[in-house]
Simulated scan of single mutants.
Amino acid sequence: MAAPDPASAPDPASAPVPGTPVPDRDAGPVTRWHRRSGTAVLLDGFHALKHAVRFGAKVEVAVTADRAAALALADELAPDVRDALAALLAEVPYETYASLVPRPHPTAVAALAVRPSRAGNLEKLAHTPRTAPVVVLDLPRNLGNAGAVIRLAAGFGATGVVTTGTLDPWHPTVVRGGAGLHFATAVERLPVDELPAGPVFALDPEGDDIRALKLPDDALLAFGSERSGLSAELRARADHLVALPMRPQVSSYNLATSVAMTLYHWSATGDAS
């Protein structure tokens, strides 16, 4: 019998060491999910995965209970990332999919992605000259509203969204509300004294009518909570107080509505192209 070819023999240095985990490329999607679920960003639903892939997220594992339906959605709504989604999506039984997420999404799609580095996001927020404002949510309370604001900010091409206070802007409910568009803008939490440089235009009922103002590209657009408004610390940091037009006896706008109106005003009258 011929002797084995040394060139084809396995390299002892590359052989797995007994007791060590199997490399992820050889693990099934559920195993990979459980290994990463504690630190990765949950992308809940087809649209969150679509946007994350479109804006360069590193997706570690993606599952669906109906791969054919998910790819049909991609053909219809996201042909630009269809091939990437086809390479990522693994089909699992519906019961398995449902066990991996807090509550099943109608599209039966979920994925885990690597969160962008804080250092990279802070660098983007601090970079000057800035070509689009930074949205600041001062002590926000509602996770869904925060997600809706991030979705708006991404749609308008804002430089980023910064929250103050205890709300985590990368909470799964916020990411779900943002439809995966956290990966299209810089999202971080900072104390007021560490906000990026730039003039602060803070929304307040006693401020100047926004319709008489031009919002510069390097502005920080600050919004207080719907219940208590701006904090004293943020108000002291503000360079300008700005008011949205509002009918008398109406208490306030929804936070996301206020952000949308302000970003639209910037896009229509400011330096934005």
Rank of each mutant, 00 (worst) to 15 (best):
V63A: 08
E76H: 10
E123V: 08
V17F: 06
A70N: 07
S99Y: 02
G177F: 00
H171Q: 07
D271G: 15
R237A: 15
L244I: 14
V63T: 10
A132S: 11
N121A: 14
L100P: 06
H127Y: 04
R118L: 12
T262I: 12
R141V: 12
E226Y: 10
V81F: 03
M1Y: 02
A219S: 12
A219N: 09
D209L: 11
K50I: 00
L143E: 07
V134C: 06
R35I: 06
A268P: 12
P245S: 12
A148C: 12
V61L: 05
G180C: 08
F183L: 01
V242R: 11
P245A: 13
T159P: 07
R227L: 14
A256H: 12
A69R: 15
A40R: 12
S99W: 01
P4V: 03
L152H: 10
A243T: 14
A184C: 06
A2C: 00
L85C: 03
R54K: 15
V250T: 15
V259T: 12
R36P: 05
A86G: 15
D44A: 14
F223W: 08
E60F: 06
Y97L: 14
T39Y: 10
T131S: 13
D24Q: 11
T173G: 00
L89T: 01
L139D: 15
E226G: 09
P23C: 09
A158K: 02
Y264S: 15
P169R: 06
A2M: 08
H51Y: 11
G19E: 02
A2L: 11
L71A: 06
A2P: 14
A40P: 10
E95N: 00
H240R: 15
V53W: 01
M246H: 12
P79V: 05
P205Y: 12
E91L: 01
V187F: 05
S225H: 07
T31C: 03
R32T: 14
V30K: 04
V200H: 02
V92W: 02
V17C: 02
S231G: 14
F46Q: 05
R35W: 11
G270E: 11
V63S: 10
T20G: 06
D193Q: 07
G28I: 01
L143F: 11
S251L: 13
E194Y: 05
D26W: 13
D271A: 15
V109K: 00
G155H: 05
Y253E: 10
T96A: 11
A110K: 00
E206M: 00
D5H: 03
A186C: 09
H182M: 02
A146F: 00
T131K: 08
L100S: 02
S252D: 11
W266N: 13
D66R: 11
V30P: 08
A2G: 00
P199C: 00
M261W: 13
L181N: 05
A113G: 07
T107W: 00
T31L: 09
R237I: 08
L42C: 09
R235F: 05
W33V: 08
T64F: 03
A111H: 03
A74K: 03
R235K: 15
R35T: 13
M261T: 13
A153S: 14
D204L: 01
D24E: 15
R35Q: 13
V187Y: 04
A236H: 11
F156W: 03
T257C: 15
A113D: 02
G45T: 08
D193N: 13
L263V: 14
A146N: 05
P12T: 10
T64E: 06
A86C: 02
H47T: 14
